[in-house]
Design a protein around this nucleic acid. Sequence first.
DNA 1: TAATATGATTTATG
DNA 2: CATAAATCATATTA
Length: 343
Amino acid sequence: MDEQPRLMHSHTGVGMAGHPGLPQHMQEGTGGTDGDGRKQDIGDILQQIMTITDQSLDEAQARKHALNCHRMKPALFNVLCEIKEKTVLSIRGAQEEEPPDPQLMRLDNMLLAEGVSGPEKGGGSAAAAAAAAASGGAGADNSAEHSDYRAKLSQIRQIYHTELEKYEQACNEFTTHVMNLLREQSRTRPISPKEIERMVSIIHRKFSSIQMQLKQSTCEAVMILRSRFLDARRKRRNFNKQATEILNEYFYSHLSNPYPSEEAKEELAKKCAITVAQVSNWFGNKRIRYKKNIGKFQEEANMYAARTAVNAANASSHGSQANSPSTPNSAGSPCTRSMPITR
DNA sequence: TAATATGATTTATG
DNA sequence: CATAAATCATATTA
């Protein structure tokens, strides 16, 4: 930039022989060397660096080649390997042996059980079927709720699988890369196959820890989904009329002892298309609520009493006392079935 | 929309 | 563990 003027100056200065010295000095001291020279230096350095790099690379390559071709090389290499083998073994003794991580196993099991990591469609439907069974088999109306659950589950599964695949692929890529590198290096420095193996296992461990994180988060997601599903399941659905009638029938015809045996519960459950647990719930609720307010249930009690009475009369045209249900008005105390009631 | 009914869950008890 | 009792959360009704 400002070299040009100075050069011009210098030219003029040189040309003017009558004034030597000052301009000349200025030119050399400041102008020329300062600008031109520095640039030159940088250029030189750069050049040097470049050439050095090139040279060293070439040199290294050459040396490597020379080394590989050296007649002493195999022997030397063997010695190195031997030494290394010993040291490595001593090191190796300390660590090693990885037990299968129980945490990971747990995650795997859960994912498998949840149908996330299992077979594609089979797992999902199996899980759905299990869920349906768990929900009490209260009818076909809960399939709508399940579809939501299933959709989200399959979404999770898809994400999980793609991520897993991605990790797997990255792991394989990286492993092969490292192995190639090591194989290449093993020509100039002693690297035993065991070492490579160890390296690979280290890589795998690293990647599996990442996978574990994925599994963890997937499990979390499934748990959340599941809890929400359970919450949804908690949405109460009244039993159908028939079921309540059957239950009430039993209740009021056993009012003196409204505690169905396990067998009776099973039968009731079957008849009402609900679970035994639901039958238990129902009786638990019924008992406490009946006891709490007998008056409120009076009407109902009479109704069922009448009905069962009619049934009994119809069934057995026996002349003697039909076993009419116990009276509601004496619910707390144990009243015999033979106790006749009217109304 | 408040009140009530009702199935499920939680807590307490023997 | 079965049940009682209290409580929750929703469904149904008025």
